[in-house]
Amino acid sequence: MLIFSVFKTLTDQTVTVELKNDLSITGVLKSVDQFLNIRLDSIKVLDEARHPHMIAVKNCFIRGSVVRYVQLPAENVDTQLLEDATRREAASQVKR
């Protein structure tokens, strides 16, 4: 749930999603769900010539399971907050 919350705070920001098939897509993060499926609007595909099927696509839904990385806007991520939240979540898992 922690990572899901992080992505929720980043909605309407520009991110770059890199898929396991090496396709990289930059776009505006419009929504994310519990499986970390991602909806991107106004997308731009890196190296579009190698991926001609993407030319007419403007908005897309990416299944969470095929994501390798998401590059996040560093200026909008509070790393101290993240670490505290991670420790809290880890502590609550131990108690279970």
Partner: peptide, 11 residues
């Protein structure tokens, strides 16, 4: 190099 990166756990 990348500034801030989410890495999916299954990889």
């Amino acid at each position: 190099k990348m500034n801030m990166l989410f890495v999916r756990g299954d990889g």
